[in-house]
Amino acid sequence: MKKDSKIYVAGHAGLVGSNIVKNLIAKGYNDIVVRGRNELDLTNQNSVMNFFETERPEYVFLAAAKVGGINANNTYPANFIMENLQIQCNIIDAAYKNDVKKLLFLGSSCIYPKMCPQPIKEEYLLTGALESTNEAYALAKISGLKTCYFYKKQYGANFVSVMPTNLYGPGDNFDLENSHVLPAILRKMHEAKVANLPTVEIWGTGKALREFLYVEDMADACVFVMENYDEIDFLNIGTGEEISIKELAEAIKEVVGYKGDLCFNIDKPDGTPRKLVDSTRLKEIGWKYQYSLRQGIEKTYKWYLENEDSVRTH
């Protein structure tokens, strides 16, 4: 990409998309195109095609998606598979037909089999059954990865895909029912601190292992891949480091300054015992994350305090 290349970021208001826009601006890119949901319905094929024909973006970051927690995925699977397939197919096909130079598609860690060997290599895709609670979303994301793969294979289109590990950071969803584990614990700790509660409940035994990537690092990796990687195979993006939920909760407790005790509810599920992606390919190309988990939690909590009135809690 050149600094004056026209770049379209689909999903610019989301957790990853907003940080991709910030990263691009910080690196001097000056022609970034975005459209809000009220301006462009990405599920409408004609609207998307008209947008591409009019704007003629040269590069596309496809970070737009319908997302939600376990409850939402379980309750509305038809919505999750259909809307995500529509968004992906409309943008990928319009990009190809309007001579986009390069497109980057964002996958999700749920694309891998439920009982996947650890750490998870890219080649483990489609080697086993998916987690049933988010199967619809996973199938849509797998289809997006494969659509990019086949457009490159058949047409030579420079469409690449990346698969991030668990993300967190400013702009995250802090809903206690539907958010991911890190923002949920952070909000619980903060509210317990404010209310001076003696204990905070943590779901499960605390023994499950997880990997976390700060969203600014994810955005930086996306821009790095757009600038440096043109192969047909998709890439995992992660830190290569894992931490137990108990250790995570203790780290958040320290950052927040909560003085009470942690209470682990063993009647609640732990989920998958371990979930770590193998990011060797990306590391070999030359990218490495910048923020430690502690630094990321500190930056996320600072943002939470500054935006508490407007933070997403549902």
Results as ranks from 00 to 15, higher is better:
2 K>L: 11
7 I>R: 02
8 Y>F: 13
8 Y>M: 03
9 V>K: 02
9 V>G: 00
9 V>W: 01
11 G>N: 03
12 H>A: 11
12 H>C: 04
16 V>K: 09
19 N>R: 15
19 N>K: 15
20 I>A: 04
22 K>W: 05
27 K>T: 11
29 Y>I: 06
33 V>M: 12
33 V>E: 05
35 R>F: 08
35 R>N: 05
36 G>D: 14
36 G>Q: 12
37 R>M: 13
38 N>W: 13
40 L>H: 03
43 T>I: 09
45 Q>F: 14
47 S>K: 15
50 N>H: 11
57 P>W: 04
60 V>E: 00
62 L>K: 03
64 A>F: 07
67 V>D: 05
69 G>M: 10
70 I>C: 08
73 N>M: 13
78 A>G: 15
78 A>Q: 15
82 M>D: 14
86 Q>T: 10
87 I>L: 07
89 C>Y: 12
89 C>K: 15
91 I>W: 03
92 I>V: 15
96 Y>C: 05
98 N>V: 06
98 N>I: 06
99 D>N: 14
100 V>A: 06
100 V>E: 02
102 K>S: 03
104 L>W: 03
107 G>L: 03
107 G>T: 03
109 S>V: 10
113 P>S: 07
121 K>M: 02
124 Y>P: 00
125 L>V: 02
131 E>W: 12
140 A>P: 10
142 I>G: 01
143 S>M: 13
150 F>E: 02
153 K>Q: 10
158 N>Q: 10
159 F>V: 02
169 G>H: 08
171 G>K: 11
172 D>M: 13
176 L>G: 06
177 E>D: 14
178 N>R: 15
179 S>I: 10
179 S>N: 10
180 H>V: 14
180 H>W: 15
184 A>H: 09
188 K>F: 05
193 K>S: 04
196 N>F: 09
198 P>F: 12
201 E>W: 09
205 T>I: 08
207 K>E: 07
213 L>W: 02
216 E>K: 13
217 D>T: 11
221 A>N: 03
228 N>T: 04
230 D>Y: 13
232 I>F: 08
237 I>M: 04
238 G>L: 00
243 I>Y: 06
245 I>D: 01
249 A>F: 03
250 E>Q: 13
251 A>M: 15
252 I>R: 04
252 I>H: 03
254 E>H: 12
255 V>C: 04
256 V>T: 04
259 K>H: 09
263 C>A: 14
265 N>C: 09
268 K>L: 11
269 P>T: 08
270 D>Y: 11
274 R>H: 12
278 D>W: 00
280 T>M: 05
281 R>V: 08
281 R>M: 11
284 E>G: 05
292 S>C: 07
292 S>L: 07
292 S>Q: 07
299 K>V: 01
299 K>T: 02
306 E>V: 10
307 N>W: 14
310 S>H: 15
310 S>M: 14
